[in-house]
Computed example of a mutant assay.
Amino acid sequence: MIRTAQLLVFGLLYLAVFVFSLLALIDAARRPSQAFVAAGKRTKGFWVGVTGACTAVSFAAMPPLGAPLGFLVLIAAVGAIVYLVDVRPALGSGPRRPGPRRSGGW
C-alpha cells in the first residue's frame, strides 16, 4: 500500500517535470534568436538543447518506462526551472502581433 502511494507520488512528480520541460522547450523554440542575445542570455541553440535534453530525460523516466533516472530527472527539473524562471522573463513578451487600435475616448 505504501509502495503504491510512493510510486504514484514519484509518477506525478516525473509527469510535472516532463510538462515543465516540454513547456520550456516549446517556449525556447518559438522565441527569435535575437531575443536571447538582446537579453544577455546564452544563445537560442543552447537553451533549445538544454530544454530538449531535459524533456527527453524526463520522458524516459516516466512510468511505464520507469528507467532508473531519478538523479537525472532532478537535473532536468533544474534546467527547465532555470529557463522558466530566469531566461524566459528576461526575454520579455516577445514580438507582438499588431491588434486593432482603440481610440482613447468615446
Rank of each mutant, 00 (worst) to 15 (best):
41 K>P: 03
80 A>N: 03
32 P>C: 00
60 A>I: 09
37 V>L: 07
38 A>H: 01
99 G>S: 10
43 T>S: 08
24 A>H: 07
41 K>S: 10
68 P>C: 00
23 L>A: 06
16 A>N: 12
105 G>V: 12
13 L>R: 06
26 I>H: 09
12 L>S: 11
77 A>F: 15
14 Y>L: 13
45 G>D: 06
13 L>S: 06
53 A>S: 11
18 F>Y: 12
104 G>M: 10
77 A>E: 07
49 G>H: 00
36 F>E: 03
28 A>F: 01
74 L>G: 11
60 A>E: 02
79 G>K: 11
16 A>R: 12
20 F>S: 08
54 C>T: 09
55 T>K: 05
94 G>P: 09
9 V>N: 00
102 R>G: 12
57 V>N: 02
31 R>A: 10
64 P>R: 08
40 G>C: 04
15 L>I: 08
11 G>M: 06
16 A>V: 07
71 F>E: 10
105 G>Y: 15
58 S>A: 14
79 G>E: 02
16 A>Q: 07
79 G>Q: 08
14 Y>T: 05
33 S>V: 05
52 G>S: 12
81 I>T: 15
95 P>R: 11
58 S>Y: 08
45 G>T: 07
29 A>T: 14
27 D>N: 14
2 I>Q: 11
57 V>T: 13
57 V>S: 11
76 A>Y: 07
30 R>L: 10
30 R>K: 14
3 R>S: 13
83 Y>D: 00
91 L>C: 00
6 Q>C: 10
81 I>A: 12
105 G>S: 11
35 A>H: 07
106 W>G: 10
2 I>W: 05
12 L>I: 09
34 Q>P: 01
11 G>S: 10
8 L>T: 15
11 G>T: 01
93 S>K: 13
50 V>W: 03
90 A>R: 13
96 R>M: 14
56 A>N: 03
106 W>Y: 08
51 T>D: 02
60 A>G: 12
7 L>T: 03
77 A>Q: 11
49 G>W: 00
75 I>P: 01
105 G>E: 15
2 I>L: 14
2 I>F: 11
59 F>Q: 01
9 V>E: 08
90 A>M: 01
11 G>I: 08
34 Q>Y: 02
104 G>C: 12
81 I>H: 03
69 L>W: 04
20 F>E: 12
36 F>S: 07
94 G>Q: 06
86 D>M: 07
57 V>I: 13
104 G>E: 05
92 G>D: 06
83 Y>G: 02
103 S>C: 04
48 V>K: 02
18 F>I: 00
80 A>K: 00
66 G>Y: 13
94 G>N: 09
29 A>F: 09
8 L>S: 14
89 P>C: 09
41 K>A: 09
103 S>R: 12
39 A>M: 00
76 A>L: 04
102 R>E: 15
91 L>F: 07
24 A>N: 05
44 K>L: 07
34 Q>W: 08
34 Q>T: 05
97 R>F: 09
40 G>Q: 01
67 A>V: 05
6 Q>L: 15
100 P>D: 05
83 Y>Q: 03
84 L>E: 14
45 G>A: 04
66 G>T: 15
86 D>H: 01
88 R>D: 04
70 G>P: 02
9 V>T: 09
40 G>W: 02
76 A>N: 11
92 G>Q: 13
31 R>I: 09
62 M>T: 10
21 S>F: 14
2 I>D: 00
86 D>G: 01
101 R>S: 14
35 A>L: 01
56 A>R: 02
22 L>R: 05
81 I>L: 11
59 F>A: 15
86 D>V: 10
